[in-house]
């Protein structure tokens, strides 16, 4: 019986050594996965996923603490991309975080703006131009439609406007939906 125990402990010793050496030799630092996830997220920095911005949400996903379906601006496409990257099952968008809506732009109603700079401080991407007691305006090309500037505005002069597609940004309709009903098309 003794030899059995001795043999096993000997085996354990040798293999433990091998593992210890390997652990040192193959040390790994940094977490490249979080960058990959961050690249997929739409960067609206809107916080609807209950994280301060896209980077914290990406790190949380990389650490596996949180689900991949908490990003309404990204919508289905982002969830599909995350599911592909992380090899997990696709889950529909979590209703609690909000619903997927077409891309919107914030527009300041210039008659009612009192120049209080509250929205400038709230904008996560500095897309609002203006100074204290001066007229404010939103830089359309930079606004990500995160709606963070709406609550702080005391006179509620910012409203969200849907972006109208122009001929060169227009997208062909998805034929998969009209596939079977093609017969009665004009």
């Amino acid at each position: 019986m003794l030899t059995a125990i001795l043999a096993i402990t000997l085996l354990a010793l040798i293999l433990g050594l091998v593992l210890g050496f390997a652990a040192i030799r193959f040390k790994v630092e940094g977490d490249p996965i979080a960058d990959q996830i961050d690249k997929i997220l739409p960067q609206t920095q809107c916080g609807q996923c209950s994280f301060a911005g896209c980077r914290p949400y990406a790190e949380a996903i990389a650490a596996g603490e949180v689900d991949i379906n908490r990003c309404p601006p990204g919508g289905e496409a982002t969830i599909h991309a995350l599911a592909d990257l992380l090899e997990v099952e696709f889950k529909p968008l979590d209703e609690e975080c909000g619903v997927e809506k077409p891309k919107m732009l914030a527009v300041i109603d210039e008659d009612r703006c009192i120049g209080c700079t509250l929205c400038i401080q709230a904008c996560p991407v500095d897309a609002i131009l203006g100074a204290a007691k001066h007229m404010h305006t939103v830089i359309a090309s930079e606004c990500t439609g995160c709606e963070l500037c709406l609550p702080p505005c005391p006179v509620d002069c910012i409203d969200m406007v849907e972006t109208k597609p122009k001929p060169n940004t227009w997208r062909w309709p998805d034929p998969a939906h009209i596939d079977l009903k093609l017969g009665d098309q004009p």
Binding site: A22, F26, P32, I33, Q36, L86
Partner: peptide, 15 residues
């Protein structure tokens, strides 16, 4: 350990 070192993506995806 070897896989984690050589290709982190494969390590994450094999999980």
């Amino acid at each position: 350990l070897v896989v984690h070192k050589t290709s982190p993506i494969l390590y994450q995806v094999l999980g």
